[in-house]
Nucleic acid binder design. Structure first.
Lengths: 200, 200
DNA sequence: GTCTATAGAGGGATAGAC
DNA sequence: GTCTATCCCTCTATAGAC
């Protein structure tokens, strides 16, 4: 089931779907970029949607090595891990002139009536991301209010990331990203002050 | 420049782009739904993208009558206006089985390398929405900290709306929308408490 | 597993009569 | 302004030799 060709197709499709979106990426785009021929692609994948599924499965399986490990390199504090994660997306926006946002979020909004398998995989990717943030909040539990709904806050942080990228990309202005993150930081600070008052 | 046919095309395209997205809506879709023929459409619009531009201009020009007036009917409190606005999107999600999210946000993420005019119009629509929320915050200025960055908070609220819709649609679970809004309400409450302390 | 060639459908857009 | 007919292109997918 695995092969160098199959993998090359997936890696290329990951990139093309990220930059151009799913519908705007043609099979020919993938073929010319990979130097793979039609027959080979259809040997590994029944159709275009199956390439998408493989891409989403790869994101799902590689969230640690593909995203978190890199973003968290040298960052120990669990709250700062959250901001380091957000900062990774910020860097992508800046270094690619606002071309690379969140690959999952873009697909989520581009595909309006997705196949159930596709929808499930997008959802799974979101939940894995939220899990990672929730774990940070658990690590920092002693700094937040005792009755904090950590799951809800982690979902909220995913929302900030997605909304901040959407606005910054559209305006082509990183200030929109930064101000969104500033408001989030303000919110977390207020929560931590609440906890300090609980403890005193 | 105006005519019943032209308007019918725009209204139909507004709906189709909202539900299916831009790329997945074909000219034929618009023609069959409107019972307009190819020649008429191309009489009014040079091409498909010009239909999109007209759609975005219509959203821009009708934000009051098409969105705000309805959402704010019977709501006087400026802070509750914000939540009433969010609740309008919630209702759309529920009554359409998660098919109708935010028409502008979907286009923002679907179109990866939009024509400058299209990007500008999406941005303009976002800024008009943010303006409306910022006005609510100005109306309620006496309840929030004196040094509040109201623009940043209004942008943040757009972010919440877009991110909450994205997650709720993907999970097909309104709980994701509601929990996001709950966290926002918690944040506004904390800010209002801050102001109360400034005043005391 | 890989290659070439091409089928078959649907896309946006146009021509020209009325 | 509206209608019919149709062009041309690109898209996904397939056939069949190697």
């Amino acid at each position: 089931m695995n092969s160098a060709t199959r993998d090359k197709i997936i890696r290329t499709a990951m990139d093309l779907f990220w930059v151009k979106g799913y519908n705007s990426t043609s099979i020919s785009d993938i073929l010319s970029r990979t130097q793979v021929h039609s027959g080979s692609l259809y040997h590994f994948f029944p159709g275009k949607q199956d390439v998408l599924i493989a891409v989403l499965e790869t994101y799902r399986d590689e969230i640690d090595v593909g995203l978190l490990d890199h973003a968290w390199e040298g960052v120990e504090d669990p709250v700062e891990k959250i901001f380091a994660l957000l900062n990774g997306y910020r860097t992508h926006l800046l270094t690619t002139d606002y071309q690379y946002g969140c690959p999952i979020g873009s697909l989520a909004l581009e595909l309006h009536e997705p196949d159930p398998r596709v929808r499930e995989l997008i959802d799974r990717n979101f939940r894995n991301w939220v899990d990672a943030v929730e774990n940070c909040l658990v690590e920092a539990a002693d700094r937040f209010p005792r009755d904090l709904d950590r799951r809800a806050l982690a979902e909220f942080i995913l929302t900030i990331m997605e909304g901040a990228i959407m606005q910054a990309r559209t305006a082509q202005d990183i200030g929109l990203f930064d101000r969104n993150v500033d408001v989030l930081r303000e919110h977390l600070d207020l929560l931590m002050k609440q906890r300090a008052m609980q403890d005193s």
